[in-house]
Design a protein around this nucleic acid. Sequence first.
RNA 1: UCCUGAGUAGCUCAGCCGGUUAGAGCAUCUGACUGUUAAUCAGAGGGUCGCUGGUUCGAGCCCAGCCUCAGGAGCCA
Length: 482
Amino acid sequence: MSQRTKIKALLQSQQTDIDVTVKGWVRAFRSNRFIALNDGSTNNNIQIVVDFENTDPALLKRITVGAALSVQGKLIASLGKGQTVEVVATDIEILGDSDPDKYPIQPKKHSLEFLRENAHLRFRTSTFGSIFRLRNSLAYAVHQFFQERDFVYLHTPVITASDAEGAGEAFHVTNFDLDNIPKTDTGEVDYKQDFFGKSTNLTVSGQLEGELGAMALSDVYTFGPTFRAENSNTTRHLAEFWMIEPEVAFNDLNDNMDLAEDMLKYVIKYALDKCPEDIEFLTQRLQEEEKQKPQNERSDMSLVEKLQFCLDNDFERLTYTEAIEILKESTPNKKKKFVYPVEGWGTDLQSEHERYLVEKHFKKPVILTDYPKDIKAFYMRQNEPDAQGRETVRAMDILFPGIGEIVGGSEREERLDRLEKRMDEMGIPKDELWWYLDTRRFGSCTHAGFGLGFERLVLFVTGMGNIRDVIPFPRFPKNAEF
RNA sequence: UCCUGAGUAGCUCAGCCGGUUAGAGCAUCUGACUGUUAAUCAGAGGGUCGCUGGUUCGAGCCCAGCCUCAGGAGCCA
């Protein structure tokens, strides 16, 4: 049997009247004559023309939606409209039948909720084909960006004993028989008898270990799964997600912002260059979806335009303190339209405030810096108090339209005395993090890094609305199917 | 976890004020047609009305509890 040609290549073929073998899954079978065949190499189908009058009727009956086919035939310039080339079949082999009575994916619009429940088959829809090809390209672009800059891809542990970062609830990892958990004399769980001899959990961040690598390799990044046991039921959170965490020695906060902005623009540009058809398809999809919304809620830019806009404009950079002033003076705040009115300095911004800044005030991605020290993590570098004695840290959050926080990072506190003092204040156990503090004891230096939620990036680039639709098999409360 | 809404055929949904045999479109099956593009036309099959309990002569509809889903909020990436 001759080697199969991918459908993407066939559709781009400059040659016609050549013999080809094509394999894929039936998307539609019309008029007993036209098969729309797809193999996932592109969103577009190749049309197979069947000589139904000279084909066994029993075979024709088995050409159903979802069936896997191998087709031999001749690639010709299409005789019909709607496609440039088509394959006139000379031989069709059914590789795998698909019972039309039971196959859940029909050649029609399905709700995203329904497809989520059929996540094992949703790859076979145009929307999810596009999403996962884009996800792949974005992941590749992330590596390419860092590799071009001589970063070291560092594999930080998935199982860890440190729950110290305070990045959220962690999933416990244990080998105990849960019906018979060893206890100490005082009635507490005796982790000494567990596999690792101590309490362990799935990582909530590779940052602390990333810092260890950066303090020798200079420029490192991680890109791996991360776990949060928060009971979050939103369109922006997953219990298992992929995070990208660069950590760079000798970088300060400004270098850190430059790196994050460059990286985001790089990967978005890569996706635009590499997957124009998929982005075009998802642009159409979003347009259809927006038609359902009332006029005032519709976006004034299409998906492609939004992505291009993101490349063409510098992200707006301002401090938390400046943002608070803008929000205080904003129309919705004065007209008491915010659920949480902006009054004082020192509280965290609510989603509605971030959205106002990004979507209404600046109308582009925003980087907020220098947050109040009390609402941020212990490892962030402390600024000197300002004239009013307000204490801030060298933190930065990148806010994207429709997504909210996509990146969170900071310059790290490299001064041992300041770091230890802060850990004491926040009740972080120094003895457990002795190894982290060692980096400040031996050759400490300025360094900075950030965390990028990969799925949030995919959400932005695909224009999808729910994070559960941009990861193949989403993990979230009450759901671990597939 | 909180707030709001939803759960009726394989899918998307309608179902009046509580009243006889629960409907439509698409999908599926049968037949017709055959250069179709979500093909078209005719016919047929298909239901534990989320689950449990309650009110009532009578519940898809009212009440309570639970489960699941969606949107928003919090936590964050």
